[in-house]
Amino acid sequence: MKKILNIAAVTIFLLVTSATVHAQKGDVKFNLNYNYSMPMGNFKDNIISNSSPRGGTGEIIYNFSSKLAIGGAFGYQDYYQKYPRAVYKTGPNETTSAVLSNSIQTVPVMAKLTYSPAGNGGAVQPYLSGGAGAAFVDFKQYLGEFGSATNSVSFVAQAGAGVFIPFGKLSAAGLRLGADYNYVPYNKDGFGALNTLDVHAGVYFPIR
């Protein structure tokens, strides 16, 4: 996980510096969001059904018109579930009774496009967004206290919608509320996709 955080930190640095270098004054905003994530499909059915209240996202947005913005996003989410003791078939004639714990941390890093059909006027500005990139996935599975860990990188694609709510009529800062669907075709060790539906709330503010 330390390695993943280092990679994320470097990515964030590059995103921030490149956006601020190329942007005109007032064009670059930053989002910081609390993120609540709900596993979907195979992720929910076979790995972790608990929703995760432990996450956050950040996004650098460069508005190149009143309706369109590009940006870079990153995040962190921690998923965990402990299943009651059960007997698992672990070999042709081998069975293991154990409490099974699954622990997954994801760090998505994405390029994003945001479309605000009503532009940047109005008290509430709806938006649609889409993104794609890489998700660093740290998957740990424990039988009792005995665990194994797999670190990997997976493709991630995201579609989202939400609203920007400026603090004032002329303010470039405000609240952001929204939801995203994340497609993460993990497919490692037979575990399948790690798709999620996330809701987030945060603030945005100009950084240049």
Binding site: L5, I12, R54, G56, D78, Y80, K82, T96, G144
Partner: peptide, 29 residues
């Protein structure tokens, strides 16, 4: 941002800290 990342990651659930002594045990046959 880095402060936020470190803070959020420190909020992660640690699986081994959430096991009772009985839950640490496995029985293999």
């Amino acid at each position: 941002l880095l402060g936020v990342i470190v803070f959020v990651s420190s909020c992660s659930k640690q699986p081994l800290n959430n096991l009772t002594q009985d839950e640490t045990r496995i029985y293999i046959t």
